[in-house]
Structure formats: structure tokens, C-alpha cells
Amino acid sequence: MGPRYIIVAVALAIALAAGVFVAARNQAPDAPTSALALPVPKPVPAFSLLNQFGESVDQSVFEGQWDLVFFGFTHCPDICPTTLQVLAAAKKALADQGREVLPRIVLVSVDPERDSPEILGQYIDYFGDGNLGLTGTLEEVRKLTGGLGIFFQKQSGDDDGADYSVDHSAAVLVIDPDGGFHAVFSGRHVVDNFVHDLPILMGNR
């Protein structure tokens, strides 16, 4: 191969790379920038929990609407209310845009020992109407979290063990109307990320 062919080959490679870059940039407005969408939605695992009204619900509670699901607990003073405020603000922003399809906000308690349906109901109502809270036995909560790859672990508390904390995944999951785990937002949650990505995720259905 002579020098002329090498130059042509390099030029072609650069042109190809530039084309791929431009194509990727052109696709960006239609692609989520923060959420990671699963190639194929994963069905929510079977479980039996209580909603905030004390009614028994199973995995079908996730069917029929888009859900933003966060796993936290009501004794959490910082990251849990902050995340729920972000989700509520994102939902309001989408409503202000005139969008008809709005996600439901769901809080699954990773502290069912302290989070009764009544306590959970008071808590989630603070962040808006139409929210769903799920609690129940630790075993049933673990059926749901385990099947979705969500981690949580109770920590030792003070001397009498009352004021303990719970380590938990910070992720927000997107569940589609078929009850499928569709996408995940991880990391530090920002309102604009949800406002940008959710219509794309929901419109791709």
C-alpha cells in the first residue's frame, strides 16, 4: 500500500467518524440524556403489599399508568423528601406544558417496620395528589426490591435502637403502563432531567 492509499484511507476514516458524530448529535434531541432505558422492559416481580389506605395490592397496581418509583422511608429527613420534591416539581412542569400523560409518583417504604400505611399516606400526600405509597412486610418489600435490583439495608440506631437509618438505592425507576420496568434515573436527581427525558420515554411506547 503506497502513501497515497494510506492518506485516502485515513481521510475516509476521519470522514466516517465525523459522520457518526454528526448523526449521534442529530439524534440527541430524541434520546434521554439522563435516564437509562432498558432494551426490553422487565416485568415487575410478584408481590403483595399495602397501599396507603391499607388495601392489599399486588404487581398489577403498576398497570395502567406511567409510574416514577422511589424507594425510601419517612424517617429520612434529607434525600427522600428532596427526591420526592424533585419528582413533584417535574410532574408539575410537565402539566404546565399541557401534557396529558403524567406519571404517578410512588414511594415504596424500605422501612416497613415504622412506615404504617397511615404514616406513609400522610407523608406522600404532602408531595401532591394521586401519589401511591406501598408498605407491608419486609419479606414482601424484598420481593419487589430484589426483582428490580434495588438495595436497602437497615443500620444500627442509637442506644435504644429507635432512631436508626436505612441505606437505600437512590434510583428512581420508570414503570410503564404494562407494568414493565422501563428505565432508571440514577445519581443526583434534577428536575430538568425528568422534564426532558420523561416525554421521550413515554412517547417511545
Binding site: 429520612c76 434529607d78 434525600i79 437509618s165 437512590a170 434510583a171 440514577s186 443526583r188
Partner: peptide, 14 residues
């Protein structure tokens, strides 16, 4: 006085 950290996607408060 508490500190929340998020490491490897897990929120911890100490």
C-alpha cells in the same frame, strides 16, 4: 449533625 452520601447509587446517612 448528619451527612448523606450517595456512593455507587446507594444513599447513606451517618
Amino acid at each position: 449533625i448528619h451527612e448523606t452520601t450517595v456512593t455507587d447509587g446507594v444513599s447513606r446517612m451517618r
